[in-house]
Amino acid sequence: MEQGTVKWFNAEKGSGFIERENGDDVFVHFSAIQGDGFKSLDEGQAVTFDVEEGQRGPQAANVQKA
């Protein structure tokens, strides 16, 4: 798993970007967020995640709040 920080997340659209510790920013969709309840992330929040190849390039998967 990688570690990173939420660069921004739009709760209305359900997507945003995570700033990786090593590498380019990666797209995140709300469906990749693990946990119960409303799936959203806050700017500056620390997260851990896997990276998968999506239709438009790398994207975060199995996102967990650190």
Rank of each mutant, 00 (worst) to 15 (best):
E12C: 15
K39G: 05
L41A: 02
F49D: 02
G37F: 06
G37W: 05
Q45M: 11
G16M: 02
G57V: 06
T5V: 13
F49I: 01
V28I: 08
G54W: 03
K39F: 06
F27I: 02
G57Y: 06
K13R: 10
A46N: 10
G37E: 06
G37L: 05
E52Q: 12
E43D: 09
L41Q: 02
Q55V: 14
G14E: 02
E2F: 15
N22A: 09
N10C: 13
K13L: 11
D25E: 09
K13D: 08
V51L: 10
Q34D: 08
E21C: 15
K39N: 05
A11C: 15
V47Y: 00
G16A: 02
S15G: 07
F17R: 03
I18C: 03
G16C: 05
T48W: 14
F9Y: 09
E53Q: 13
F38L: 08
Q64S: 10
K65V: 13
E43N: 13
E2K: 09
V28Y: 04
V28M: 05
E21Q: 12
S40R: 08
Q64L: 08
E43S: 14
Q55P: 15
D36C: 14
S15H: 15
E52I: 15
S31C: 09
Q64H: 13
F38W: 15
N62I: 03
Q55L: 14
G57K: 04
T48H: 09
H29G: 04
G23S: 05
E12A: 14
G37T: 06
Q34L: 14
F49N: 01
K7T: 04
D50A: 10
E19F: 11
G23H: 06
G35Y: 07
A11H: 13
N10K: 02
V51I: 15
E19Q: 14
R56W: 15
V28T: 02
F38Y: 11
D25N: 10
Q3H: 15
Q34N: 11
N62H: 08
S15E: 12
G4H: 01
A61E: 04
H29M: 03
A66Q: 13
E52D: 07
R56K: 11
A32R: 02
Q3D: 06
E19M: 14
Q34I: 14
E21L: 12
T5Q: 06
E21F: 10
G16R: 00
D36I: 11
A66D: 09
E21N: 11
D42F: 15
N22Y: 11
E19D: 04
A11M: 10
A32P: 05
N10M: 01
K65W: 08
M1P: 12
V51D: 02
Q45F: 04
G57M: 05
F9R: 02
V51W: 06
K7G: 03
A60Y: 02
N10A: 05
V6T: 02
A66E: 09
V51E: 04
S15M: 15
G14C: 07
G57C: 04
N22I: 11
T48E: 07
V28S: 00
K39L: 10
A60C: 03
S40W: 14
L41M: 04
A66C: 12
Q64T: 11
L41T: 03
